[in-house]
Every structure is written in C-alpha cells, then in structure tokens.
Amino acid sequence: MKNQRHLSPRIDAGLLFLRLSGSLLLLYVHGLPKLLHFNAELTHIEDPFGLGPWMSLLPALLAEVVCPLFIIVGVGTRLACLPIIGVLLVAMLAVHPDWSIAEGQFGWLLLIIFTTLALTGPGRWRPGHTQTKGYRYGAG
C-alpha cells in the first residue's frame, strides 16, 4: 500500500496529461474544423455504411467535439471514450483500410490514448473528486 501512495500522484499526473493532450488534439485537429465548416463537411464526408452524410457526420461530431470536452473535465471519461474509439476504428478499418501504419499513425496513436483512458479512467485529478484514504486504480 505504501508504494501505491507514492506512485499515485505520478499516475494521476500522467492520466491528467493523457486526458488533456489527447482530447485537445482530437478537438483541435478534427472536431473544431468539422463543427466550424459543417456544411462543407457534409459534402465530402466519407459514408462507409451508406447512411448518408448527416448520419456519418453526427457521430463524428459527438466523438470529436462533445466527448473530448467530457474527458478534459474528467466526467464520464470511460463512457466518453467509447464513441471516440468507435469512430477511430471505423476511420482506420473501414474508411482508410489502405493506409499504411505511417499514414494512419495519428489515428492509431489517438486510439491508443483513448483506449488507455477507457481502461484506466480519468484518475483523481478532476473537478468534484474527493480525496479518499486509499487509491483504487481506475476509480471514476
């Protein structure tokens, strides 16, 4: 138990960094451009399942705008990671299956970040988290 208390601030700092850096990158590189240029995105978004541009763009906006905001704050982090993971898997496996690892490295790295957060949770450094006596990995 002594080792966990010594390591827990470092783990919490790492999870905070992972939450902020991954979410801000996703939001800035993919989410905000889709939101700010919504009509233009409708004309050229990929539609891998034939659902139409609206039904392809809305899940992307949820995953790339709304979910990163929840993750940044540390609220519902594990749940918020699931749409991101789903959209990234569709993008990497259905929309761009011909990409090499080098071409798709940003998507794969985002997939690693958000899968890690889905497994670990947000850590203790988030608003509204009360300090507890012990440390439970992945709590939250």
Rank of each mutant, 00 (worst) to 15 (best):
P122V: 07
L79M: 07
E46I: 01
I85A: 02
P122K: 06
I113K: 01
L27I: 03
P9L: 03
A63V: 05
W99S: 13
I45E: 05
R19Y: 08
M55K: 11
P53L: 03
T77N: 07
L119I: 15
H44N: 10
A94M: 02
W108R: 10
I11Y: 00
E64T: 10
I11A: 08
S23Q: 14
F38M: 09
L69V: 10
A91L: 04
F114H: 02
V95G: 09
V87C: 00
G50N: 09
G86W: 06
I101S: 08
P9R: 03
C67L: 03
L58R: 06
P83I: 06
K34R: 15
S8H: 04
I113V: 14
V75C: 09
G14R: 13
T130Y: 09
G50I: 06
L111H: 09
S23H: 14
T43M: 07
L16N: 06
I84H: 08
S23A: 14
L35G: 04
V75A: 15
S56I: 01
G86L: 03
L57Y: 01
S56R: 05
I112W: 15
F70K: 10
Q4A: 10
L36N: 15
L7N: 13
R10I: 05
F114W: 08
V75L: 15
L26M: 14
S8F: 00
L27M: 04
M92V: 01
T115H: 07
L24Q: 11
M92R: 09
L57C: 09
R124S: 13
G31D: 15
V75P: 05
L18W: 02
L117W: 13
L25D: 04
A40T: 10
G50E: 04
Y28L: 11
L62P: 04
H96E: 04
H129L: 02
L7K: 02
Q4C: 08
V65W: 00
G121N: 12
G74D: 11
P127V: 15
L15V: 11
G22E: 08
K133A: 14
C67T: 05
E103L: 08
L27Q: 01
A60C: 03
F106G: 09
I84L: 07
T115S: 15
H30I: 04
G22P: 00
P127Y: 15
L51F: 13
Q105K: 06
L117D: 07
L27N: 01
A139E: 12
V95R: 05
H30A: 12
E103S: 07
L27A: 00
I45M: 05
L79N: 00
C81E: 00
C81V: 03
T120K: 09
P53R: 12
I112Y: 02
Q131E: 10
F70Q: 11
L35E: 13
C81T: 07
V29E: 02
H37K: 13
C81W: 02
W108M: 03
L57S: 11
F114E: 11
S56E: 07
R124G: 14
L35V: 09
H37I: 00
I112R: 03
L109A: 14
V73G: 03
I72W: 04
F49T: 08
L27E: 01
L20Y: 02
Q4H: 11
K133V: 10
P127R: 14
E64H: 12
A118S: 09
T116W: 05
I71A: 05
V95K: 05
A80G: 03
G86S: 12
S8R: 14
G121R: 10
V95T: 10
I72D: 01
A63S: 09
L35S: 13
